[in-house]
Design a protein around this nucleic acid. Structure first.
Lengths: 137, 137
DNA sequence: ATGCCACCTGGAGCGCACTCCAGGTCAAGC
DNA sequence: GCTTGACCTGGAGTGCGCTCCAGGTGGCAT
């Protein structure tokens, strides 16, 4: 209910370590976060929202450098919205391509698994046949 | 039409550098490749087939260490086929999960893009309204 | 006063997957 | 015989994204 979040709260919420959180700030993914008089960080709603998007982009393998560019656009204000759209759109295109190849590769892997299962099945039949022969003998 | 491939042929075919090819061999992903009397590598059909699978797994982010385990199973012969199936199945599960989260994240990104597009649209309307006002004045 | 805890800083270190390099060899072509 | 080109080796270097560490501070509880 407070209007800020402590580092550990943010860390827990996003499953990001405190070190990573500070690292993101150092790298310019977040603008310098407000501080309490003690020097401790106080994350505002806005920080958390940006972080949410950053996590989303990071989870989809956007490199830190690109994320920084994006963050710079955000800091530069509303006139950069078209640039942000462009950046996100490019990322989305890459992501879509990536998903497509992952799905293709998965099909190939499944195919290989099926092939192996076939080999196992054939071997089992051989075994069964062999034990029948023994039984008959 | 020859029964072997040179390093550069393999490199080109898979889009892998010569260095990476040697690296994979050093790391035990390929068993030591045959050599010409000159010492140059001669990749056999079997090497190329294994490489094809390795690429497929690597493309789907299987770590080198896991790939090595898989290669060791292959080298150990047919009795390890069930273990190979297990390993591939685990990878396939992870891959499926990964694809699912990528798709989720992509939806979130698209949502953000749409939001931004909405903002742009609204801004354009404002502009239009403003210029109308000017015209009227 | 004493602990303790959450957090701070600058900077070093790590794991992964390559990637590059120097110096050398062999086979073929001029 | 000399060059060229494809390839060889061992080992060092790179880029990325964290991750860890030592040493320190402020505020609260006992």
């Amino acid at each position: 209910m407070s209007d800020y979040y402590t580092p550990s709260q943010v860390s827990e919420r996003f499953g990001i370590s405190l070190d990573t959180l500070r690292y993101y700030e150092r790298e310019g993914l977040l603008s310098p976060v407000e501080r309490a008089p003690s020097g401790h960080r106080r994350y505002r709603r806005g920080d958390v929202e940006l972080l949410d998007l950053i996590r989303c982009l990071r989870d989809t393998d956007m490199p830190i450098a690109t994320l920084r560019s994006f963050a710079e656009l955000v800091r530069a204000g509303d006139p950069t919205i078209p640039d942000r759209v462009e950046l996100l759109q490019r990322h989305d295109d890459q992501l879509t391509a990536r998903i497509a190849t992952l799905i293709e590769r998965r099909a190939a892997i499944k195919h290989k698994i099926d092939y192996y299962r076939g080999v196992i099945g054939a071997a089992e039949e051989d075994e069964r046949a062999a034990s029948e022969t023994v039984a008959r003998a």
